[in-house]
């Protein structure tokens, strides 16, 4: 029993990691109806910027917001420079562009900072607490708590502010929004900026656990996709719940399902994506899309 509990806790810990990146994926999906494959690499790059700032002697709590601002600006810049020229191209073109960005950012980070995994400071103590004989670390709890805060901020922004409403409108019906005077392209840029900043939070939170190196987010993003799809790709709440479910499922399957074992965990995540898309394409929290014809 204690063993099961430990696996559940360890799964929640990884789930928090997946959820934090899934939130950024969901945000960009809401902004432009597209998943951004480069999201993980952008988060990794922002984390390297944070570590560089700290190496230069900046305090963690100053480096953190500065990184978010840089990440936001970077996200906007990428949208303006790389995405905008192909904004109206078919979805496939955009997907290929984000895949290209993935390779580019990954290579650039390796070129600048090298490939050795390095430790990253965490605002949370590295101690653990014991719950019914199983151990949970403050860092893991911290990641989940930060996810909750980011979720709340995103919710308030999208649902309670005019900017959020405009963003959603621009994503869902660009033509009508444009006719209503919305600067659609800039709204998309705003969405990229926000997603990039949320991704940066994710990178900074998970780097103390996964260790910072250019490939840090490459696997995480697949689990994050599973989380986002499971939760319903449009729903921020779904992304967090989906992330935690994926984390726990993958861990329990690896530990207790015969023949799965630790090395097939990724296959379990991919199976979740396929199963959700086949059985419940809108995920747990997504709304079915209705189109009037």
């Amino acid at each position: 029993m204690q063993g099961v509990l430990q696996q559940v806790f360890s799964g929640l810990a990884s789930g928090g990691i997946f959820a934090s990146l899934a939130l950024a994926l969901v945000l960009i999906y809401n902004a432009m109806g597209l998943v951004n494959f480069a999201q993980g690499e952008m988060a990794m790059f922002a984390t390297f910027i944070a570590v560089t700032l700290m190496d230069r002697g900046l305090n963690y709590w100053i480096a953190f917001p500065v990184t978010l601002v840089i990440a936001f600006a970077g996200g906007v810049a990428i949208q303006r420079i790389v995405i905008r020229p192909v904004e109206r191209a078919p979805v496939l073109t955009l997907v290929i562009v984000t895949l290209g960005l993935t390779a580019l950012i990954n290579g650039l980070a390796g070129f600048i900072w090298g490939y050795l995994p390095r430790a990253f400071p965490s605002p949370f103590p590295s101690r653990t607490i014991s719950v019914l004989g199983a151990y949970v670390s403050y860092q893991d709890l911290g990641v989940i708590a930060v996810c909750g805060v980011v979720l709340l901020v995103i919710y308030l922004l999208l649902q309670r502010t005019t900017v959020g409403l405009t963003m959603r409108a621009a994503a869902h019906n660009p033509e009508a929004s444009r006719l209503m005077g919305v600067r659609v392209s800039w709204m998309l840029a705003l969405g990229w900026g926000l997603a990039s900043a949320v991704g940066a939070v994710s990178g900074i939170m998970v780097a103390p656990i996964l260790f910072l190196e250019p490939n840090m987010m490459q696997t995480v993003i697949i689990y994050a996709f599973a989380a986002a799809v499971l939760g319903g790709i449009e729903s921020p709440v779904g992304a967090v719940v989906g992330g935690l479910i994926v984390g726990v499922t993958v861990n329990l399957a690896g530990a207790y399902v015969p023949y799965v074992g630790g090395d097939l965990e990724l296959a379990v995540a991919l199976a979740i994506i396929v199963a959700v898309l086949v059985l419940k394409p809108n995920g747990l929290f997504g709304r079915p899309s209705v189109r009037r014809v």
């Binding site: 696996q7 799964g11 630790g262 965990e265």
Partner: peptide
């Protein structure tokens, strides 16, 4: 075991301890 594509090995270590 873990696969080289794994995100983390926390689960495996917990199993070994158990």
């Amino acid at each position: 075991s873990y696969d080289v594509t794994a995100a983390s090995v926390g689960s495996q270590v917990a199993t070994l301890k158990a």
